[in-house]
């Protein structure tokens, strides 16, 4: 457990000055900032829609949530899985990492956990910044009555569900980036996966949940239906993929020679 903790600390220390780390902070900041700016600058048009506070929040939140779930989250997860392993590929440091007196599982699990933490930080910031910017807008545009409703509970559930839906993609891409040092292979497979996930989810294919890349889209497409349910088929599938692939990844790594 101690090796896992120090490996995790080391992951943070190594990546704190890299784009991978800062992307998890800057991405939500930029997107939520742009959505807030767009809402303020188009307030007259929004006011003409005569939305109540709850619908106004849904309108505002969907500005970040929809592109997030459909495109940004899968791409971000692919990039994160790539970055966490690429730091070792790029610097040729696998050999020094695995010649430290730490068990291989701790090193592997710390990398996986760190990628998950970054995705969690990113999604948490999306949640907090969406809520925060929404509550700040009335100070600039008082006619937009955001303060009359609080979406924090529903938003928290949706973002948490999005987080769980990312486990499958992360685990699959984590193995790809563990095996391949180059950017194109994992990115290319991920890109095809995202397209396939988007098409199958949007067309309502009944087995779309079998494709990990479709899980965020499926979460978003089901968010308004029949009340909110956290553990749906795609979440079970995502967690099952994560469990199987996490074990498979460790098995691959433990048999792998470090060249």
């Amino acid at each position: 457990m101690f090796s896992l903790y120090i490996s995790l600390r080391s992951e943070f220390y190594k990546s704190r000055k890299t784009l991978a780390f800062w992307a998890s902070i800057l991405l939500p900041l930029i997107i939520c900032g742009l959505v807030a700016f767009g809402t303020i600058s188009t307030q007259e048009r929004i006011l003409k829609m005569h939305l109540n506070a709850e619908t106004l929040w849904m309108y505002f939140c969907s500005g970040a949530l929809n592109p997030m779930g459909l495109l940004i989250l899968p791409f971000y997860v692919i990039f994160m899985a790539f970055s966490v392993n690429n730091i070792e590929h790029r610097n040729d440091t696998w050999k020094s990492l695995f010649s430290q007196p730490l068990n291989r599982f701790s090193i592997y699990a710390a990398k996986y956990l760190y990628a998950l933490i970054l995705v969690f930080i990113c999604l948490s910031l999306f949640l907090l910044l969406t809520w925060g910017f929404g509550n700040l807008i009335p100070f600039v545009a008082p006619k937009l009555r955001f303060q009359d409703y609080s979406p924090i509970e529903l938003l928290s559930k949706i973002y948490f569900k999005l987080f769980l839906s990312a486990f499958g993609i992360l685990s699959l891409q984590f193995i790809f980036s563990l095996l391949w040092a180059d950017f194109l292979k994992p990115m290319g497979i991920g890109f095809i996966g995202i397209i396939a996930g988007l098409i199958t989810a949007s067309k309502g294919w009944e087995y779309a949940y079998l494709i990990p890349y479709s899980h965020p889209s499926l979460v978003l497409s089901s968010k308004g239906k029949e009340g909110f349910q956290l553990f749906t088929t795609e979440i079970y599938a995502s967690l099952a993929y994560a469990l199987v692939l996490f074990i498979a990844g460790y098995f691959i790594l433990s048999k792998k020679s470090i060249k």
Partner: peptide, 26 residues
């Protein structure tokens, strides 16, 4: 051990590389 080319993180300073290793080794 020093194996082949030194395995160091190019985006970190010399001291940071050593501090990272200190962290790993307690």
């Amino acid at each position: 051990a020093l194996v082949e080319q030194p395995a160091i993180y190019a985006h970190m300073t010399g001291k940071e590389n050593l501090l990272n290793r200190c962290m790993l080794l307690g």
